[in-house]
Amino acid sequence: MIADVVKTMPATMSGDLSAQETSLLAEVAALGRTISCAKAELAALRVDDITDNHIPFATDELDAIVEHTAKATNAILTSCETLDAVAASLSDEPAAKLRVATAQIYEACSFQDITGQRITKVIATLKTIELKVAQIVATFGNGEDVMEVVQADGPAEVVLLNGPQRPAVAMDQSDIDRLLASFE
């Protein structure tokens, strides 16, 4: 757009230009050349590949991970349920041992929920990057269809959807118990 302005400026000016006006025009022309170079470099980088190929590929792969882990987890749970049914036919001690073992497997299987939520967060981040890249391409390209970037801010309820925290910074059950106890 600035390049267009620079091209049309001389035609709209009449009479001799002052030194200050000539200097200003030169600066605007230089700015126009810089922007043209930046656009050419951006085009050479094929930034639209990021939105057209790389990010869709990454999100599809992540979706596949969620699907495969869900299938595997369900197969494990089916086997555990069979073991629980077998436990019901055993005497007290072996039945109790078997139930402890299956309970531990059930606990471990909750990884699928946690990893699913973490992957969902990664996919959301990738989609934000995709939108921002599309916005940059639109701004430095033809200026068409500048996509609206979704802002992180929202209603309080949405802000509270933080998802799983990294273990190093997350509160554990005992921290939460202490916090709850502080209300009593």
Binding site: Y106, I114, G163
Partner: peptide, 27 residues
């Protein structure tokens, strides 16, 4: 829930939650 931030626990308590378990949890 996997929501383990203090602000979540406080919001749940203020809303009247009876207890709060953070994922992953055990039996």
């Amino acid at each position: 829930t996997a929501e383990s931030k203090a602000e979540n626990v406080v919001a749940a308590k203020q809303a009247g939650v009876s207890n709060y378990i953070v994922k992953p949890f055990n039996a």
